[in-house]
């Protein structure tokens, strides 16, 4: 009786399925709950990996609910590589499409924020450009420069107060108010931190990240919000080591 790895895997993921034949204890009796050690190891280790990777979601749902939901997710979306640091990329979309959680519409975006923080943590190192570099660029060239971003930087737009929800659960922040929030993830050295972006900044930073010239990116910001403050946004990027260099046209 050959036990294939397909049989073994299917029986691990489906607890209702019969345990594979051909597996025994020491004296030739069917393995029984000895097989369940593997069922349990796989489910617990993947569930724990998700709880570690999505601590805010785990806190919001509570341990029991989180484990039940993780148990469904990990069977539909097992890891596709041994790089557990990246496990859960499908979790935000899964949370959004999971009917019983439909009343918690913010979960998907909060999970996306946590994915962003995790990616930032493992992103390649880079050295931020010195803040005075900007001052050394000739005034008439400033509008035409483009910026290169550190790999640890990302932005996220949400119609939910995702930063406030994260801060309330992870940093004892104040109770979240029902507002939309744009978030910028920066990693000055090794610890990623999310920052709320003021109106207009998301449009400007997104344009800069896409390679737009500074002048164009600033217009995107002003179009989105008349009070957009380019100086404040550049200041945030520079102090957070978000920019690795500027390309100045000759």
């Amino acid at each position: 009786m050959t036990v294939t790895q397909t049989t073994f895997r299917d029986a691990i993921f489906d607890g209702a399925q019969e345990r594979p034949l051909g597996l025994s204890d020491a004296i030739g009796q069917p393995a029984g709950r000895r097989f369940d050690v593997y069922r349990n190891n796989v489910a617990v280790s993947l569930s724990e990996a998700l709880a570690t990777g999505f601590p805010t979601i785990a806190k919001l749902l509570g341990e029991e609910n989180f484990n039940a939901i993780a148990g469904i997710f990990l069977r539909q979306f097992p890891p596709t590589s041994p790089m557990m640091m990246h496990y859960g990329a499908d979790f935000p979309t899964f949370l959004e499409s999971f009917e019983p959680l439909a009343h918690l519409g913010y979960l998907g975006d909060v999970a996306r924020l946590e994915l962003g923080l995790r990616r930032s943590y493992h992103a390649a190192d880079s050295t931020g450009v010195a803040p005075e570099t900007l001052a050394e660029i000739p005034q008439d060239k400033l509008v035409d420069i483009t910026a290169n971003f550190a790999p640890a930087v990302s932005v996220q737009r949400s119609s939910w107060p995702i930063h406030a929800i994260w801060a309330f659960n992870m940093q004892d922040g104040p109770k979240p108010a029902a507002v939309a929030q744009d978030v910028l993830i920066l990693r000055p050295e090794y610890d990623p931190l999310p920052h709320v972006l003021p109106p207009g900044a998301y449009e400007c930073v997104t344009a800069l990240m896409a390679g737009a010239k500074l002048g164009t990116a600033a217009e995107f910001g002003t179009e989105a919000d008349e009070g957009f403050d380019l100086g404040a946004t550049l200041g945030l990027l520079l102090t957070g080591n978000a920019l690795t260099s500027f390309d100045v046209p000759s």
């Binding site: 050959t2 036990v3 790895q5 397909t6 073994f8 895997r9 691990i12 593997y38 190891n41 796989v42 280790s45 993947l46 990996a49 097992p78 890891p79 596709t80 590589s81 041994p82 557990m84």
Partner: peptide, 17 residues
């Protein structure tokens, strides 16, 4: 041991005959 089958990684050290 084995841990990956048909593209799915099971995050455990599974036994072999």
């Amino acid at each position: 041991a084995w841990s990956t089958h048909e593209g799915a990684f099971l995050n455990d050290l599974l036994p072999l005959p």
